[in-house]
Design a protein around this nucleic acid. Structure first.
Length: 233
DNA sequence: GCGACAG
DNA sequence: ATCTTGTCGC
């Protein structure tokens, strides 16, 4: 990612942002994964309310053991406000910094937010996937757009998330008797790939281990309990 | 016009 | 997203 590209994100406004989403959506690929993923990563952001100082964490885990392989943490200011549908413009710059810092890239990256389950099919997972040209998955705790039928309460159950006439993802019961998470392909993988990869990252909690660990380190950084940088295990 | 609305 | 203690239920 060039510095010019990052500068562009810092000067863009909501109107231009939506136009860019309409342009970039032409590049979305939902082709199935070619190989079985060996390394999965999770990314998350943490910040204090009212502050524009963001803290990002990306954690790479090995499959199928989910052991920690590496970690990247970065703190930086954001210049874009939180606007539903335009989350990527607020968090992409810092996530790109954290991504570039990784010495080895994972096969798939899971984001806290949506993939194509977005009004213009350009959620943060899809947008980031296109920027880094890597497979990504959106795993959100709440719906942005679309609806779905009732879902069985057992872990592993799923129902399509429908927006208009399109299936944009799924509601997934990631843990028995707990509200579902919303999974959608971001880029360079299919909806079934997204399901299988997220399932592999589930342990005893609602959120995948990737997201949980990324959240943990982003928070440690925010509280000054962790150092910024790249760490290999 | 009204309500909904990832993090 | 973040601020926070106890408490109900599988």
């Amino acid at each position: 990612m060039s510095g010019d590209r990052l500068d562009y994100y810092k000067t863009i406004d909501p109107t231009k942002a939506k136009k860019l989403q309409q342009e970039l959506r032409q590049q979305i690929s939902l082709e199935p994964l070619a190989d079985e993923p060996q390394f999965v990563a999770g990314a998350d952001i943490s910040f204090n309310q009212g502050s524009n100082l963001m803290h990002a964490g990306i954690i790479i885990l090995g499959l199928p053991d989910l052991n920690i392989v590496a970690r990247s943490t970065v703190s930086d200011k954001t210049s874009f406000p939180y606007i539903p549908g335009l989350l990527a413009f607020r968090e992409l710059p810092i996530l790109l910094k954290a991504w570039d810092q990784l010495e080895q890239k994972p096969d798939v990256l899971i984001l806290d937010g949506h993939g194509i389950a977005h009004p213009r099919r350009m959620g943060i997972a899809t947008h980031l996937g296109i920027e880094i040209e890597h497979p990504t998955i959106g795993c959100a705790k709440n719906i942005l757009t679309g609806s779905h039928d009732e879902l069985s309460s057992q872990k592993g159950e799923r129902v399509p998330l429908i927006d208009g006439s399109e299936t944009v993802g799924m509601a997934l019961r990631s843990r028995t008797n707990v509200n579902p998470v919303y999974v959608s392909p971001g880029h360079r993988l299919s909806s079934d790939d997204a399901y299988s990869v997220v399932m592999k990252c589930l342990t005893k909690y609602k959120l995948p281990r990737t997201t949980r660990l990324a959240h943990k380190w982003a928070n440690k950084l925010r509280r000054g309990e962790a150092e910024e940088g790249y760490f290999k295990n």
